[in-house]
Amino acid sequence: MTFTAISKRLKTIASYCPKGARVADIGSDHALLASYLLVEDIASFVIAGELNEGPYQAALKQIHTLQARDRASVRKGDGLTVVQPGEVDAVCIAGMGGQLIVSILEHGKERLQGVKRLILQPNVGEELVRRWFIENGWELVAESILEEDGILYEILVAERGETHAPYANKDRSMEELLRIGPFLWERKEPLLREKWGHEREKWQKVRTQLERSDKPQAQERIKQIESEIDWIDGVLTCLHMDKQ
Rank of each mutant, 00 (worst) to 15 (best):
E189I: 04
L178E: 00
K205F: 06
R172H: 10
S173Q: 09
M174V: 07
E186D: 13
Q204W: 08
R179T: 09
W185S: 05
R172M: 09
W203D: 06
H198D: 02
W203E: 14
L184M: 05
R193K: 15
E176F: 01
K188L: 11
E189M: 05
V206F: 05
P182N: 02
E175P: 01
L191C: 11
S173Y: 02
T208W: 14
L178A: 05
R207A: 12
K202I: 02
F183P: 05
E186K: 08
L192D: 08
E201P: 02
D171R: 00
E211W: 04
E186H: 07
D171A: 09
E201H: 11
G197M: 12
G181C: 06
R212V: 14
L191P: 10
W185G: 02
E199W: 15
R193T: 15
E211I: 07
G181K: 01
E201R: 15
K188N: 10
W196L: 14
L210N: 03
G181S: 02
W203K: 03
W196G: 05
K188G: 11
R200I: 02
W196F: 15
F183H: 09
P182G: 05
P182R: 04
L177S: 01
L191D: 10
S213I: 10
T208G: 00
R193F: 06
E201A: 13
K195A: 12
P190H: 12
L210Y: 10
L184S: 04
R193Q: 14
R212F: 12
T208R: 13
H198F: 08
L178Q: 03
R172V: 07
R212G: 09
R212H: 13
E199H: 14
K205S: 05
R212C: 03
P190K: 13
R212I: 02
E189K: 05
K188Y: 15
T208H: 12
L192C: 06
W203V: 04
I180M: 01
S213D: 12
K195S: 12
K170D: 04
R207V: 08
P182T: 01
W196M: 10
I180L: 11
W185M: 07
W196I: 06
D171P: 01
E175T: 07
R187K: 15
I180E: 05
E175F: 00
K195M: 09
L184C: 02
V206S: 01
K205A: 12
K195D: 01
E176K: 03
G197A: 13
R179K: 12
V206P: 00
P190M: 11
W196K: 14
E176R: 03
E186S: 03
L184F: 02
K205P: 00
L192T: 05
H198K: 15
E194A: 13
L178F: 00
H198N: 14
R212L: 14
G197W: 11
E186C: 01
K170Q: 10
